[in-house]
Design a protein around this nucleic acid. Sequence first.
DNA 1: CAATTTAGCCAAAGCGCTTTGGAATACTCT
DNA 2: AGAGTATTCCAAAGCGCTTTGGCTAAATTG
Lengths: 340, 340
Amino acid sequence: MNLKQLSHMLSLSQTTVSRALNGYPEVSEETRRRVMDAAKRHGYRPNPSARRLATGKSGMIGYVLPTGASVDIDPHFVEFLSGLGDYARSHELDLVLSPADADDEETTYRRIVANRQVDAVYISSPRPADRRLALVNTLGIPFIVHGRSEGLDFDYPYLDIDNEGAFHEAARLLLQLGHKRLALINGNERETFAIHRERGVRRALAASGMTLGERHIRSVTMTEENGYRAARRLLEEAEPPTAIVCSSLIMALGVVRAVRDLGLTIPGDLSLVAHDDVFPWLRPENFPVPLSTTRSSIRLAGARVAERLAARISGLEEGARGEVWPVDLVVRGSVAGAPG
Amino acid sequence: MNLKQLSHMLSLSQTTVSRALNGYPEVSEETRRRVMDAAKRHGYRPNPSARRLATGKSGMIGYVLPTGASVDIDPHFVEFLSGLGDYARSHELDLVLSPADADDEETTYRRIVANRQVDAVYISSPRPADRRLALVNTLGIPFIVHGRSEGLDFDYPYLDIDNEGAFHEAARLLLQLGHKRLALINGNERETFAIHRERGVRRALAASGMTLGERHIRSVTMTEENGYRAARRLLEEAEPPTAIVCSSLIMALGVVRAVRDLGLTIPGDLSLVAHDDVFPWLRPENFPVPLSTTRSSIRLAGARVAERLAARISGLEEGARGEVWPVDLVVRGSVAGAPG
DNA sequence: CAATTTAGCCAAAGCGCTTTGGAATACTCT
DNA sequence: AGAGTATTCCAAAGCGCTTTGGCTAAATTG
């Protein structure tokens, strides 16, 4: 059933039927009713390919997926996707993942924009002065960044959590508990979120007249193994930290293992706070010692990003609005006063 | 730059240019060369929307993503995606995720097929007599199943691992080590992979004249917490198992925690084998006691599925070929002879 | 050498929608 | 009543490809 048949069946022109269906005003309410009715009854659905060719709109949002033999997709991605999909579903928006060589995402961005394959894109894990942002910004496709960049000479729309604030609070708590030697096990130092987290910790330390030594900060990709290694190195130093702030639950698993291997205890010898993106399959309250966390649902972020993308596509949202979500600090058993 | 302009510029018809570009034989080699050349020089790229409308081919593969507030996307998905993307990239294939209400995926399948949004789809986590397979099979869109169904009255193309064989081997090993009381902590019992795994364990037990009691098998969604709970229940029984086979590394984390909480040790009091899908961020060799696993890279499976989908799209692969990959049994420190 | 093929190219007709630029009818106003 | 203004609808022109059905000139055949 296509438009031609439908309009013929109604003895109307394609124009009128099309307009009736798309809510244009130049069609009488009665005709619209008739058309809508017939469309529903015959299950008419406009062919998206045709509509797309005519309008240039695809009804899809895009994401450029960096791939490569040595490139691992962040496990957080799937949770973000859950939220995104949750919203997108209710709006019949599809998501297209365009795999790209991790060393050359630009070509892919250009392609999907030139081809008008998607109406908007979202970008995640931005870095300082991220070139992708500059690119999509000049290409003129609607977009939203999940996270933030820095040092760009233009504004852009984003959704981020208050990473600096969160880690500032975490560090401040530990300092108030009397800890003098803090360490930070962070994510990839080239990503903005990690920079912000470090900044938060430093700011808290500075407020107490302390600093974060080079050796007390580790930036690694967030795997259990890296968490373990980082923790071991830190704890085997001459003056080991009595508190660690850690950028992910997965790394925290490794930290806990390291602590055990060294015959130490949490929170007796070490206080631990980690960031929790809220995975359904790994929860901080179920750690051997319930883990204190800075918590922010990445899933909700996904839903919100989808919502804003939809708004931008339909012109309801404009400009470079940045949105920063506060982060909860949830205190559980893994923190205590500094050891004697 | 569109076809019209390009052909005009070459003083050729659109027909000829189109044919030259798409490798049709009714154009002379010289002309083809000229056309190819000019196309490259001017960076001509056929508009996919137009091509799509004309041919009905989209150059994308589809996946229906079940969503809902209480629906969690399997974290394995992201690894599978890595592999898929890795292959798809080299073929300029995009992947479109169509979010669907988890209670009604059928509507979405029908939509993407009717709209010809994608050239092929893949289906994951099949269940026995999975209605999705029957649906796509009758809808006539090329597809591949990652996993297997059962009890369907038709054949279909799939890629699966030998879950039954893997768990059979794991159980057999434990039996040979003298274990008399085995337990299985499995995934969702309604998914075929879980059924196969159970079957494997049962078969091994049967070969030794034993059976798997109702209380020695737990089927749960694969979270750390569920692994913990299942293990606790099992281990707190009157005659606790001395060996556990577990369907995922994430659940194994919970098992390890439960064992500790109960003051037991691995492998002294309990031998443990788990299935490993090979995550970059959680490795069995890094468990407190290195974990024995049945191992199969889900990422490689993703790449293979993409490869076969591409082949089916281009007509290189036909029929209902099923492909079953063997699974490695990797023995590490977590298994030992049954306790006295 | 006339009769056929064949190779190489083209005009035009889709694909199924949206949108422009009227046209016709009905309604309002003086 | 006639001019002006809404209202409601339509024919046709795109959007940019692919593909069908020729057509012409060169090559092959008997």
